[in-house]
Design a protein around this nucleic acid. Structure first.
Lengths: 248, 248
DNA sequence: CGTGGCCTTGAACCTAGTCAAGTCTAGTGG
DNA sequence: CCACTAGACTTGACTAGGTTCAAGGCCACG
């Protein structure tokens, strides 16, 4: 039954030109003709259940994946086996961009909930890049963004305290939801407290405490995984380190 | 006098094909014919004194720069004016890879000591990429590495304690010196304690204390900016979080 | 020879981590 | 449909690692 409904959904968005996420996703900035060409090589219909692995660190990276619905986390394991969540990936976002010197993937990717994906083979992308300057530019832009986002995270992890980190995450998720046409003030945290903590460099208890403190101060309303942002301005200020809500 | 000697040095390495850093730098993986083509567009002889700015966050990014000698730091300033050092760049390494959605640079770059550079205009690189698949691949590889390095730093900043961070930096610098044909066990820290601390998310006092503790434990010998690694294995173990030298 | 920047060292403080219960929730099977 | 359970989350008490503040030493440079 579920399978049937999901199949119907796929039938409904079988091409980039029909996809409402296209202007955020890989095709952004390409002409219609270019998108059609690209489109021909994209494999659709890949789906993952919650907890399923999309790819594993160390595997050869042969494709990019665009999230169509659902969400993923990417993470790396250090030599000592410590997990570091490197990002959460929402619809229209691309995973699999980075490969190391042997073309191996430096991170693993796992579905945080039921997730549908488009798969874009890398060798095809490279071929098309030959005569599609727009696509080349788009690829560089995507990688640039990845670099810049990671550098932002360096700032978060090295200079911000627990409240500023959580506020930054909320602002970030809010903006990404809004970019996709959803509410900037009410959304679901698809990831667990543990995963948030891992990503932000905090203990899960700290995540819980700070979110509840935000609620007590009337900045947000939080019911398990559902967040409603009540005082966005104050959360921006907190994220930028301009104010302080650490006192009780 | 200095100028004259440095000029002589430049005359001596006026082309990628003669440069002993070529196989680490942008030309890596290209054929000789391809390198010659690339070479024609590279501007050499750009130099910076200690403290001089190569480019500033927010400026349009129109070129890449390869460090020929000397060293740079890159850093970003948050809205609140907090500085975050995002990397140190040694000879053969490329800066300026990331640009944001408006083609603006997300970081500034400043020389840590007298530095000579090669400048590679981005539009030229894009043109050459048209029919040079090797160059395209090389660009993606460089950006991939940048992403991966930044993700490594996320792990460092979010999971490692002060000792592990310093050990990681020492291992990293040691490897990069070795790659360029220099000693893996004796090198100079071109950056200040303050800059190390900023990069690693530590107070400069902590940097000083930990380095001195390493010395007391016989892991390194440190005299101001000059480091000699005495027990590399133990430093690797520390960096990977396998051991602990926190006790006195 | 004096001055300023960089570095070291010590002591007090504080943020977030750890440990330990306890509660809630979603999912399972009777 | 309800009872049960495992995992997720909350809350509290204590602790530790690193920051901050303060003072003093060391060069390098004019």
């Amino acid at each position: 039954m579920t399978g049937k409904r999901l199949l119907a959904r796929e039938m409904h968005e079988p091409h980039c030109t029909d996809c409402r996420l296209a202007d955020l996703c890989l095709p952004m900035g390409l002409t219609n003709a270019e998108i059609e060409r690209l489109d021909g090589f994209i494999k659709r219909g890949k789906s993952l259940a919650k907890g399923e692995v999309l790819f594993r660190q160390g595997q050869p990276g042969t494709s990019l994946y665009a999230v169509r619905s659902g969400a993923l986390k990417t993470f790396s394991l250090s030599e000592a086996g410590v997990e570091q969540v490197t990002g959460f990936h929402l619809p229209s976002e691309i995973v699999g961009l980075a490969v190391d010197s042997d073309e191996r993937l430096p991170v693993s990717a796992v579905a945080l909930e039921t997730t549908f994906l488009c798969e874009i083979p890398l060798d095809m992308l490279d071929n098309l890049s030959n005569d599609m300057a727009h696509l080349r530019k788009r690829m560089l832009r995507l990688m640039s963004r990845e670099i810049r986002d990671n550098q932002q995270m360096l700032l978060v992890l090295s200079k911000k305290n627990a409240e500023q980190r959580l506020a930054t995450l909320l602002v970030n998720l809010s903006a990404r939801h809004q970019a996709r046409g959803y509410s900037a003030t009410a959304f679901r945290l698809v990831m667990s407290r543990h995963e948030i903590g891992n990503f932000l460099g905090l203990a899960l208890e700290t995540v819980s405490r700070v979110l509840n403190r935000f609620q007590q101060h009337g900045l947000i309303q939080i019911d398990n995984k559902d967040v409603r942002i009540l005082r966005a301005e104050e959360i921006y200020a907190l994220a930028d380190g301009l104010t302080d809500h650490s006192s009780d």
